[in-house]
Structures are given as C-alpha cells and as structure tokens.
Amino acid sequence: MRQISLFIALFLFWLALSGYYKAFLLAAGVGSAIFAVYFAHRMTADDEEGHPTQLFLGTLTYYPWLVWEIVKSCWAVTKLIVDPRLPISPTLTRVTATQKTTVGLATYANSITLTPGTITAAVDGNVLTVHALVRDGAIDLEGGGMDQRVTQFEEVR
C-alpha cells in the first residue's frame, strides 16, 4: 500500500521533470520508479516515518494554518528588521512536545524553525530548546498552541 503510493509519487515526479511523453521515456520512468521503491524498501525508508501516507488527511488542514502562521510572523520579523531602533529581545526557552510519534515531533520542531522568529536549537527526548527573536514569541510557544495543533494533525486518520 505504502509502496504503491510511493511509486505513484515518484512516477509523477519523473513526468513533471521530464516533460516528454514518448513510450520509451515513460517505460524508463516506470523502471526508475520501481527501482527507487525497491531501494527505499531495502533501506526501510518506506515505513510510516519515511513516507507518512497516514498524515495525508491532516496536511489538508494543517498546512494552510502553518502558511498563515508563517505569513504573520514573517511580517512581524520584517517590521523588527526595518525598525531603526531594532527592538529585538532574543530569548532562549525550553518547551515540552506532546507528540507520540517521531514524525509528529519532527513536524513540530520543523514548524517552529520554519516560522521566522523562532528556531529549534536542540532536541533532547521530547524537550525542545527554542531560540526566539522576541520575548513574546517564546511566551506564545510556551503556551503550547502550536504543540496542540501538531498533536491534532498527527492523530487525524
């Protein structure tokens, strides 16, 4: 099941990159995709961590929310940069992640880093060390809104 989904994804990738739809090139694409899936299976890179198909439904609601968060915090950081007084207050903090799977934890840590203004600097078990550009950003993260959001995303089936 997971292998079939990986095969389809890889073959679509091939089609988009090549742009030629002749019989030989299509056959070569199918062959390459099959080999790539076989190698991924040998490397056990096609498990629920390497190709998380179970998260597909969750991404439909989570990604738009994440993009909106990125836009908001990007605007805030840009305002700080162009402010002549440069009113930054860098803060280092530690937050607990409540995700149960490694994929969920990685999603949370990467979401923190992807949002400008906060960076995951270290991961230890389920405690993340976060560097925030302003104090309010650190306090927001400690409140755990994003954490709950990612935990929800991880549990959607």
Partner: peptide, 9 residues
C-alpha cells in the same frame, strides 16, 4: 531569523 524570512515568504 532574518535568513528564514528570505527562505519562507
């Protein structure tokens, strides 16, 4: 933080 503004938005 400044570099990630370039990378995202």
């Amino acid at each position: 933080h400044a570099a990630s503004v370039i990378e995202t938005l």
